[in-house]
Design a protein around this nucleic acid. Sequence first.
DNA 1: TTGAAAGCGCTAACAA
DNA 2: TTGTTAGCGCTTTCAA
Lengths: 336, 336
Amino acid sequence: MSDHNRATIRLVARHAGVSPATVSRVLSGSRQVSAINRDKVLGAVAELGYSPHITAQNLATGQSRIIGVVVPDLSNPHFTTLVKRLIHASAADSYEVLVADSDEVVDTECSLATDLLRRCDGVVMCNPRADDQALLALTEHDKPVLFVNRRFTTSEVSTAITDVGPAMEDITRHVLDLGHRRIAYVGGRVQSYLDTQRWSAIQRAGAGDDVELFRLPIDEHIPSWTSIAKTVLDLECTAVLANNDIGAVSLAATLTRMGVDVPGDISIAGFDDTPLASWFTPALTTARIRTDELGEVAWDAMSQMIVDPSTVIHSMLVATAVFRESTATRSTRPRH
Amino acid sequence: MSDHNRATIRLVARHAGVSPATVSRVLSGSRQVSAINRDKVLGAVAELGYSPHITAQNLATGQSRIIGVVVPDLSNPHFTTLVKRLIHASAADSYEVLVADSDEVVDTECSLATDLLRRCDGVVMCNPRADDQALLALTEHDKPVLFVNRRFTTSEVSTAITDVGPAMEDITRHVLDLGHRRIAYVGGRVQSYLDTQRWSAIQRAGAGDDVELFRLPIDEHIPSWTSIAKTVLDLECTAVLANNDIGAVSLAATLTRMGVDVPGDISIAGFDDTPLASWFTPALTTARIRTDELGEVAWDAMSQMIVDPSTVIHSMLVATAVFRESTATRSTRPRH
DNA sequence: TTGAAAGCGCTAACAA
DNA sequence: TTGTTAGCGCTTTCAA
């Protein structure tokens, strides 16, 4: 039963006593076909177990019904959720999803996207960190490209963005209210759009008072939490805002192991509100990003762009702060 | 700049003053071409910014250089890791990965796989739970199908399996050594191959003594950990072995919230050794599955099967127990 | 409503 | 080494 003797539309046509065109019409419903012929065709299709050769369809129609998605790291639950949602949303419209993972290597983002664009009807770029010029060049391929969590100076490209500012401001004000005055923002890559937004929000909320803010970016693939924890202690920070829940949890676990109490000695907040945030002890103060909604919105935009390539869409969701146990009143007792 | 005025191989040929076949040969390296013509072709390619139309290539060659993978739940870090590894391993051979997610719905596994098989050069089915017959039918499509973590009575289909038995036996003996005599196995779907293996291992290790074993499967999508916790308490189990880390952590968190001490009152073990297992407090006793290695092995097998469709491969990895803080000596003090 | 025929853009067998 | 030619399997004008 090799691939060679697959039924073709020609064979079906012969069996049904009609032309290939008629078979095509019946199967695609693109035109009316007489009931008699339709039945003959469907009979032959069933009898031969025929199903159209997708690649041939693609070539003839110029559509692949595949979209591509490029993520920096599929291991990150945030992107996993986004991709999963994208898969299900697009599956409802009979699209399939080709997933590429840049492993946080900025230079590969665009080449992955270019490769995908050659096979797909459109590409979703998640949290890209390449420079504007390189990213905008992707839109020259005449296929829809949607940028998630990235803003451009031009508004001519489609974007779907989570506004993390308000939540980050709320969290910052929250720890200020708890008495903290030396606050570190830990994690994130400097070129990341969302990270820039978070840091700006922290600065906005922390401005004025006798507050000291520290930014501790992470650019290694596997960060050394021990050295970050030491830095935090050296800087005498009593509150740490992390760029995501994984970072918050890792740092909290490291500090705990070093004998530092969380949140007794140091308050810690995460970001993303992954399930982890509520499982962890202490449960994390964090910000909820409706990632699945973002996936939904991304597919809405992409599907419209596929239908009408001139479409430009700008979607915006807003993250909201969630307060739990990992942030507490600043203690005055000395740390060991 | 519409898709219509993309350069074709014909145009390149004309610009270079050669035939399309020569252009094809230069680009694919399938045959020697004179240096002069090669340069002319490469020049024209550069000048026109030509890149081959992949779909047309696919149709002509009968290969897509895409593989498909079907997972029950991409949110599960275990599958995320597997898929990520598969993406990177196959990318090294210029393959791309189409991801489908069955959302734990057994009935959709095979139809997703069938859809993928029509576009892909091969499909990897992860932890499928459909019945043997339905799964084996997938191999009739004359495209390579690799089954991960599933065994069949026939050995004619390719498989890549993690042997979870030894680790589960070790963990069971470990809690027996700690004095536990009423032990529950929580989580997992009854039809899951790995779950069956785990439960058998527990039974093997727990046989003989005055030991009571309970199997508490989970078949809801979002399990009620509270009611599971109650069941565990009602059964007076002092040790709970979970089918994965997420389950262990969820249950542990729930019990803690109910005032039960882990591991003071109840010992808990996970499975998979995800990062979560070491972050969690108490750090989880669990079993390490080298999921990335499994992804690697899966691609090795798949790539060989693509080259030679008659290839049948059976790969086996072995999970190993990891002992941490979440399992402890059975306490004799009464529970509240 | 139907069929014939011309592609879609590429590869590969064959001949030169 | 090169070009000609015939497909790959489908869709879609165009004419009937």
